[in-house]
Amino acid sequence: MNSAIPFSAQLINLFAAVILLLAFAMLAQRRVLALINLFALQGLTLCLATLVAAVTTGQSHLYYSAGLTLTLKVLVLPWILHRLVRKLNVKGEVEALINIPTTMLAGIVLVMIAFNVALPISELSHTITRGTLGIALAVVMLAFLMMITRQKAITQVVGFLSMENGLFLAATSATYGMPMVVELGIALDVLVGVIILGVFFFQIRDQFDSLDIHHMERLKDN
């Protein structure tokens, strides 16, 4: 039954599975630096998946988007984040609002939901990689979960970026990527977003002497 799927699609499936695995690893990770490295690894896997899709389908714009992923998500953003962590002197441990095993269980439930929701959608698509749509959706949801359950602002940014990874994977798997203009726009957005957030971090720290978003809960009343 598996012989019906061509080899390249199997490869993309494998990469998608690894991206999901990395999303879970990020959910379980307690250290900020390791978290950023995992994010870079996720970007790399995404880049490889896009590359395989590009080679298989011969669509040239997929090569560009693979290159974009590589430069932006594997090199530039992790570098910026590393710098931020160093500059801001963030403490190593990530504080979670809910303990990690519970988060993981919630993650499993989310994966089930994502897979079931994606099943009818992926039947509409005709690409060879449509099976990974469920995984892409799951990655988005897991990233969301990470943003909800973590306290440090920097982990929230990583969660946001990881969500973008999931969206990118969804776009690749369902329609072989978005139009180039959209993709470039998103990439630029993400980059600018991170830079602005970086500036924000400094502001927050100056204000509260901490990057804990708990302090922002009080902003409302002021």
């Binding site: 039954m1 598996n2 019906a4 499936n13 998608a16 599975a17 999901l20 695995l21 879970f24 379980a28 990690i100 095993p101 993981m104 269980l105 993650g107 499993i108 994966v111 089930m112 897979f115 099943l119 992926s122 039947e123 099976g131 990974t132 469920g134 995984i135």
Partner: peptide, 24 residues
């Protein structure tokens, strides 16, 4: 936690198998 991670990975494997490798 260590073995919970193992369990979660195994469940993920099962789910991925159901999603990607069964006949759609």
């Amino acid at each position: 936690e260590f073995l919970g991670t193992a369990f979660m990975l195994a469940v993920l494997g099962l789910l991925v198998r159901l999603l990607l490798e069964s006949k759609v």
